[in-house]
């Protein structure tokens, strides 16, 4: 057990002040904005819960929320199995392991707007490899003109960008399984699938849960990549929550509704965070090494 020492507060004080300045003051301000109609800095009217009502009944917002949910679920459905498969097929030792690790991780370290740029170029029918290839195969592909193509491209981009995260987490989890387990399985003559189903998958549970929550929350706040790639279009086919909020706040300068929306968004995140945090704690106490070694 760690010793109790209240003086430790002095050590964390700088962090608390720093983050409070950037988090609590703005949060208070958002709450203030959300209950007033701000016509100009001098003229503002208290409107109570009016903005919350209008935001909760806003059909564009409901559309964006629905799209966001669909997108986040699609991301999970593709990235989690793909990530597990990738982790299972990565070599475990030697220079090959390092090389594959680095190659796989590259997409994680590319600035998000450049991820958008890469796919913007890659998907163009006239100059991009993927776009040209699809066109050559006879598809009428255009991510700027066709809503479902835009959707497909944004999803593919996210899979390209973030599957490595799932793979790396699972890879770390797999390395933490002691060899004795595999030896026991091979003595029993277990099939590859049985090894996966009864040894690897249960051991990966903790890491996988973290991966699921991380991917869910990250895809929930996706902004930069679709902004660069499609700008939310065509129409608003790829306008997700952050994008919608930014349009409202900066584009139209609707302070009240944007603030009310921010708060609702914040509440959703808060709930997800709480679940994630408790899972981390549980996994952390169950096996300290799960996500620990890269």
């Amino acid at each position: 057990m760690k010793p109790v020492n209240q003086k430790a507060w002095l050590l964390i004080l700088p962090v608390v002040l720093c983050v409070a300045f950037s988090a609590i003051l703005p949060l208070m301000t958002v709450v203030n904005y959300s209950v007033q109609d701000i016509i100009s800095p001098e003229r503002r009217v208290f409107v109570g819960t009016e903005w919350f009502k209008s935001v909760m009944r806003d059909e564009d917002l409901q559309g964006a929320l629905l799209r966001q949910m669909t997108f986040s679920l699609a991301v999970l459905l593709v990235e989690i199995p793909l990530g597990i498969a990738l982790a299972l097929s990565m070599p475990a030792k030697g220079w090959k392991s390092s090389a594959v690790l680095v190659l796989v991780a590259i997409s994680l370290l590319i600035p998000w707007n450049v991820v958008g740029t890469i796919w913007q170029i890659f998907g163009r029918v006239d100059i991009g490899l993927m776009g040209a290839a699809l066109a050559a195969l006879g598809f009428d592909y255009s991510y700027t003109g066709n809503a479902s193509d835009a959707w497909f491209t944004v999803l593919l981009m996210d899979v390209w960008h973030w599957t490595p995260l799932v793979a790396l987490l699972c890879f770390a989890g797999l390395r933490a399984i002691p060899d004795a387990y595999y030896q026991a399985a091979s003595i029993d003559g277990a099939s590859k699938f049985a090894v996966f189903r009864y040894i690897q998958l249960p051991k990966l549970r903790g890491v996988l849960m973290i991966a699921v929550l991380l991917r869910f929350m990250d895809s929930f706040m996706i902004y930069t990549e679709p902004f660069v790639l499609t700008g939310g279009g065509p129409g608003n086919a790829t306008t997700f929550l952050s994008q919608y909020l930014t349009q409202k706040a900066v584009g139209q300068f609707d302070l009240g509704p944007a603030a009310a929306f921010s708060l609702i968004y914040f509440l959703i995140i808060l709930l997800l965070c709480f679940i994630l945090y408790n899972w981390m704690q549980r996994v952390g106490t169950a096996d300290k090494t799960g996500a620990g070694h890269g």
């Binding site: 301000t29 709450v31 904005y33 800095p41 503002r44």
Partner: peptide, 15 residues
């Protein structure tokens, strides 16, 4: 603190 646009109910809430 003008930019924060304080109103009484919100102030009460945070207090």
């Amino acid at each position: 603190f003008e930019w924060m646009a304080w109103t009484l109910p919100v102030a009460v809430f945070f207090c």
